[in-house]
Simulated scan of single mutants.
Amino acid sequence: MKQADDSRAALCLQFLRDIAVHNNREWFHEHREEYDAARAAFESMVAELIARITVFDPAVQYLGVGDCTYRFYRDTRFSPDKSPYKRHFGAYINAKGKKAFQGGYYFHLEPENCMLAGGSYCLPSDVLRAVRQSVCEQPEEFHAIVGSDPFHTLFPVIGETHVKTVPKGFPKDFPYPEYIRCKDYSCFHPVPESFFTSADWLERSAEVFQVMKPFLDFVNAAIDEAV
């Protein structure tokens, strides 16, 4: 018998579609019960994901859901978009904490923009330089990780943003310039909404994150030495 699909993500996504259309405090307060139900569904998924990642990364076993999730209310002080609520649910499962320079695993639910991602973002210049230097000193080890078929299939691009040329102070003839042109060491795997509504989403997510782990280990080792 086919296992029933997981309805929790569908509940979350429907609420997110609604809040995208009615992103105002009056509608939100009138539909607070729907938000609470969606939030509870998402948090139960996060709890299961933490437990499943612990199987191959025991460092996250002490994290609670609250350590990994964010407020749904947007900080609009410096944004031209004054809508008060986010249009997604996200969880960052990072053994060092959500604000750490070291990288972790990111789980993102958003209509038409679901993903599994991870890595290190917004690194200070000295820490970013340290990671780049580590890549330069161990190019074949890094390439063996990110150039492997499983990793490259899931995460074909390293970094969300890049400088145009090899950074100053690094060899111009470095054999893998794309690895040191990154302005962040992150990776992204977009998935359809049906990925998270399927009955096997948890195992499939764990498989993606397990492929990511050696990349995180490499980057985090460099960051640990720099901070």
Rank of each mutant, 00 (worst) to 15 (best):
G159H: 05
L116K: 00
G147K: 13
I93D: 00
A221V: 01
F78W: 10
V208Q: 02
H88K: 10
D81A: 10
V21A: 15
Y92W: 14
T76I: 15
F155Y: 07
S148E: 06
Y73N: 12
V65R: 06
E225T: 07
V227S: 04
C12G: 03
I145Q: 01
H108M: 05
N113G: 09
E26K: 15
L16I: 10
A40M: 05
A38P: 00
I145M: 07
Y185L: 07
Q210N: 13
Y176V: 05
G118H: 06
Y62V: 08
C187Y: 00
W27A: 08
D217M: 04
G104H: 03
D5L: 09
S120G: 11
F195G: 02
D184R: 05
R77T: 12
G66Q: 14
V127N: 03
T197P: 01
E34V: 10
K168C: 04
N113W: 09
E141W: 03
F155K: 03
A10E: 13
N23D: 11
K172N: 15
F28E: 03
E140F: 08
I158F: 01
A206S: 11
R17M: 11
Y185S: 06
L16N: 05
S79D: 13
P156H: 07
R32S: 10
V166D: 03
E48Q: 15
R181V: 05
M1Y: 11
H88P: 01
R71Y: 10
V46M: 04
A95F: 02
H108F: 08
L13S: 01
S134F: 04
D18C: 12
P111N: 11
